[in-house]
Design a protein around this nucleic acid. Structure first.
Length: 372
DNA sequence: GTATGCTTTCGGC
DNA sequence: TTACGGCCGAAAGCATAC
């Protein structure tokens, strides 16, 4: 019996490619007359004329404090008099552009992993022969091809692993290219705020600040024990490794989605189960269509409720066996929302449905194979 | 103690 | 002063089984 490989993993070169302000850039690309104006891509909830939030804004809009997640009405007041364009999200169009970009990128990688509609990791170790200069040339070629073929800019980070590549891509955008060689790792990471690390959000950042840890360098110099005591084994170990630029997670193609969900805003706040069910029945129908389209079954059903005060509450139910039945989905949803309404006095603002535990094959199809 | 599964919450984009 | 989406994966927290 051979021992498991516990030696150092071989040196890698990993890139993170991030399309700049993606939805808004797609809109600029489709309609060049938008260039030079603030462009704001919005999710309209349909409740009132301007209710909803900003999904993505271009950099001209961001200069005026218009960022993802702010209410549309706030964005409008911040851009008043500036000839800004407010457009509704067009997911089919962005999906199509994304597919085109990813097809280009995939060809440049030894291994490829799409991590969102506008982001992908590429392992280029082999074709760059472990050479960061060669990797940089690959990145330049990709940027040029995406620009000339598709008219889009992106920001790229190159590093010895995913963690460093991701942070590198973030420090220079839009249209950036940042290379962090292993020997430059500490000089690059240490001055950055801890919030630059994936997994360190506002809460964790504040908690670390009270301990006098503000930069990644501060974090790197904290003992692993201190961190595991404070944040638990898993997160503490992760922080310690991450601060020292260590990350062994491989770049690999992702399989099928693990869950499918639909959520929507109610026309008015309500505690009426009938009104909620009217909406969730429609959402269930949409989910069932996706399930049939992809020839799947689900094992777990989750009801999602967002109350008037924007707090999120969920209830879920795992079935004894996978199903694709719409009646099971709808009736389970009703029972879960009954429970949700019973646990709080607040009226609901939004309601949603999620199915997970996805397995290949519709229920009837699987019943046949069960006899085989 | 460790592995596993389920429910709920968190947070990125 | 307020205003407020729709997804997704993963972590956290808990229970149970061995």
């Amino acid at each position: 019996m051979s021992q498991p490989n516990t030696g150092p993993s071989p040196a890698r070169i990993v890139m993170l490619v991030d399309l700049d302000y993606f939805y808004a850039q797609c809109e600029e690309r489709r309609n060049p007359s938008l260039r030079g104006k603030p462009v704001v891509v919005c999710v309209y909830s349909g409740r009132t004329e301007d209710s909803g939030v900003v999904s993505t804004a271009n950099y001209l809009a961001r200069e005026h404090g218009v960022n993802s997640g702010i209410p549309i009405s706030v964005a409008k007041s911040r851009l008043r008099g500036l000839d800004a364009a407010f457009l509704p999200v067009d997911h089919p169009f962005y999906d199509e552009m994304s597919d085109k970009v990813m097809t280009v990128l995939r060809d440049y990688a030894d291994r490829f992993e799409k991590v969102g509609i506008d982001e992908a990791y590429l392992d280029v170790t082999e074709r760059a022969r472990g050479n960061f200069g060669a990797a940089t040339e690959i990145a330049r070629s990709m940027k040029a091809e995406i620009k000339t073929q598709l008219g889009l800019t992106c920001s790229i980070g190159i590093g010895p692993n995913r963690l460093v590549a991701k942070i590198a891509a973030d420090v220079n955008k839009p249209d950036g290219l940042t290379v962090v060689k292993p020997e430059a790792l500490q000089g690059f990471l240490y001055p950055l705020p801890v919030g630059s690390l994936i997994g360190v959000g506002k809460r964790t950042e504040d908690k670390l600040k009270t301990l006098g840890i503000g930069t990644i360098g501060d974090l790197a110099h904290s003992s692993e024990k201190t961190l595991t005591d404070l944040f638990g084994q898993k997160q503490g170990t992760y922080f310690h490794k991450a601060a020292n630029g260590i990350d062994d997670t491989p770049v690999q193609e992702r399989g099928e989605a693990l869950s499918i969900s639909r959520i929507s805003t109610l026309r008015g706040d309500t505690r009426d189960l009938k009104v909620v069910t009217e909406l969730t029945d429609r959402l269930c129908d949409e989910i069932r269509s996706r399930i049939v389209e992809k020839n799947l079954s689900f094992t777990s059903i989750t009801a999602i409720a967002i109350a008037k005060d924007l707090t999120i509450h969920t209830k879920s139910k795992t079935l004894d066996e996978p199903t694709d039945r719409i009646d099971v989905l709808k009736s389970t949803m009703t029972r879960l929302f009954e429970r949700l309404l019973g646990e709080s006095e607040l009226p609901l603002r939004r309601a949603g449905v999620r199915v997970s535990g996805l397995t290949k094959g519709g229920a009837s199809e699987r019943r046949l194979t069960d006899f085989a």
